[in-house]
Design a protein around this nucleic acid. Structure first.
Length: 189
DNA sequence: CTCTGGATTAGCT
DNA sequence: GCTAATCCAGAGC
């Protein structure tokens, strides 16, 4: 797993599709299959690591396989899997998962009335899985937040597009999702 | 110190 | 399609 994660973010991002994100929360297991990712690298002006290491982005420059979590728009958290070698600032943003276990708890954590999906957006899945800054820098090989390989080696049909919500380096095809999966954040694009 | 805008989302028009 | 919500990192002075 570390062998995979120490590669560049744009190489790792499509390969994390089909992996599971497992959160142990109050003794209950919440899990989902990763269906959408985006790559960010220090050479990329859209990345938080572009301007070098700061207290906020420290984890992106740390060990691969740990969590880089950031807070944005005054209310949302998003989670990345740190990639690349120690000292290189890169990571893979988890943009959507397909809920597998603990779906009722996720509904409670999301606290929404609408039928909008539970985990089809980077901040939505963090809310549904109780992921916030307490897990900043967490080693994803350990509970209470783990990244686990797919159970089977089915070859996935993957689509690559430009990334969502950025205003610089917009041309890179660094967003990856499982083609036709209903749990991606923006099926069209 | 002050200012700006963001790897977003829900709810309304 | 539009925008409020609501915090703080990063930049500029």
């Amino acid at each position: 797993m570390i062998r995979l994660l120490s590669q560049p973010a744009d190489v790792v991002a499509p390969q994390l599709l089909g992996w599971r994100l497992v959160r142990t929360f109050k003794g209950v297991q919440l899990s989902g299959m990763i269906v959408e990712t985006e790559a960010y690298d220090q050479s990329d002006a859209a990345s938080h690591s572009y301007r070098g290491m700061t207290p906020r982005t420290k984890a992106m420059f740390g060990e691969p396989g740990h969590a880089y979590i950031y807070f944005t728009y005054g209310m949302h958290y998003c989670v990345n899997v740190v990639t690349g070698k120690q000292g290189h600032g890169s990571g893979v943003l988890i943009r959507a998962v397909e809920p597998l276990e603990g779906i009722e708890i996720m509904h409670t954590l999301r606290n929404i009335q609408s039928k909008a999906n539970l985990t089809n957006g980077p901040a939505k899945l963090c809310q549904a899985m109780a992921i916030d800054k307490r897990l900043y820098g967490h080693d994803l090989s350990q509970p209470p937040l783990q990244l686990l390989p797919p159970k089977d080696a089915t070859k996935l049909d993957i689509t690559a597009t430009t990334r969502v919500g950025i205003s610089r380096d917009t041309h890179r095809l660094w967003r990856f999702f499982i083609t036709s999966n209903p749990y991606v954040s923006l099926p069209k694009h």
